[in-house]
Design a protein around this nucleic acid. Structure first.
Lengths: 255, 255
DNA sequence: CTATTACTGGGTACAACGTACCCGATTGAA
DNA sequence: TTCAATCGGGTACGTTGTACCCAGTAATAG
């Protein structure tokens, strides 16, 4: 029943942890730490993949085989841990080619598909309510990666920002509608059937009442038979169609 | 810390409540109910507007001036209550003109703007994790309302579905990025400043390191100065630009 | 070497949450 | 009038995040 909010707690603490490898590392008294922040983040992602976004801190502790409160020695709280998990999964495009070598459209499609795959593999990401995005090394690298798609053009900075934001929000918005429902569910296919079976009588009654005129004209039963990926691609493709003239007009001339 | 999930609990119960006015109403023994489902949903929305999506059932009870458990006589649980709240706020376009009298593009823009306003007034809606949408009378009416925009065209049913889904997801995706952060916050403007002040040194250090080549070229400081509404309109406008040729090609000829 | 001191992991405990359950009061139907 | 179903309210339980305390450990100062 619990899904967390993040980015609101203490951004300062999250930031210190996100950029921790850039800080000083002097030796200190006391026992050697048994864990590392990396291991905790990795374990938490594994638990969230299994249990969904409502994973508990006690599950993370159990996954690591330590006491319930031990991980609090490394991470100030759950919100900050989620900030770390989100940044960790923003490592898209690390294996992909440099977008500078691709056409702008192929590049943006690659970014969208890559992001879609991250959401498909970790649907609980879509249930995280980020108040403000906490920018870590990996999310910053991801953003830098996208910007390469615009390198050969002279689009104004503001419009570059608008366009990349749009692509990300199209992917995220569609993913939220289609991918959340499969997260942490025992039998997704039967759940889908049950759901339709429950709705059907009410829908038929409603349409038969004549109060919904346009819905009744929706005859093709295959109209509803579309995947989340189809929906994402349609929105993305039309958006890129609309962006194309502006990109072509701003193509940088070779000097 | 708690944001609920919905659509997963018992859809059957939610549906019975959503379509309750269409069911039989026979008199039964026992005292007259003090409350109605409508009043509870209305009160819950008021509480959520004030406290955010992490509102508690006890707050709803207090808002109505009844005992903590009383509302459970009317609503089986929190998840089902949220289903009712979501459907209640799907009453868009009730005061708007019939989309059949408008151009398709004006119609879709109207729907997008109306949805945006609902999210602006009730940002907690964006934090609700709907597993599957539970279709009630109001959300069905909203969908029927959108379909009117395609009445004068011969677009295939499947593509109508794809296009409307795309518009809704563009609005929802952008709203989620920009509107959640202001939900249930004491001082949104100072929070924004604090957040940037916390990030700035890390960002500067990162950019100065040269690891993020394209980010460094982002010179115009105004590039980041955009509102959520700007971002939504840009994504929507480019999408509609891309949809336009297909809509024009499918315009129904007068017989 | 010893004493100091910071830091470790583990355990207990608390407040807030959703809600199962029980109870006395109330009211329509037989 | 009697019966039974339903009402509002109160108590209590399990689960959550996490504040706090404690005993053990290891680097450093003398």
């Amino acid at each position: 029943m619990a899904t967390p909010q993040t980015g609101a707690g203490d951004p300062q603490r999250s930031l210190e942890l996100l950029w921790r490898e850039f800080g000083p590392q002097h030796s200190k008294p006391g026992p050697k730490p048994k864990l590392t922040v990396e291991r905790i983040v990795e374990a938490a992602i594994a638990v969230a993949d299994r249990e969904g976004s409502c994973f508990g801190m006690r599950s993370v502790s159990a996954e690591l085989g330590v006491g319930a409160m031990t991980i609090y020695r490394y991470v100030p709280g759950k919100r900050e841990l989620i900030d770390l998990m989100v940044d960790r999964l923003s490592r898209i495009g690390s294996g992909a080619p440099d977008l500078g070598t691709l056409d702008w459209r192929d590049g943006l499609e690659l970014v969208a598909e890559g992001t879609w795959e991250v959401y498909r593999d970790h649907p609980w990401l879509l249930e995280i309510n980020q108040k403000r995005p906490v920018l870590g090394p990996d999310s910053l690298a991801g953003y830098d990666f996208v910007l390469a798609a615009f390198a050969a053009h002279d689009l104004p900075d503001k419009e570059i920002n608008l366009a990349t934001t749009a692509v990300m929000n199209i992917v995220t918005g569609t993913a939220r509608q289609y991918l959340i429902r499969d997260s942490a569910e025992e039998r997704p296919e039967t759940a889908e059937e049950d759901w339709w079976r429950a709705q059907a009588p009410y829908l038929e009654h409603a349409v038969a009442s004549g109060r919904y005129r346009h819905l009744g004209r929706f005859s093709d039963p295959e109209a509803w038979d579309l995947t989340g990926h189809d929906a994402m691609r349609y929105a993305l493709d039309r958006f890129l169609d609309g962006l194309a003239p502006r990109m072509e007009a701003s193509r940088r001339k070779p000097a």
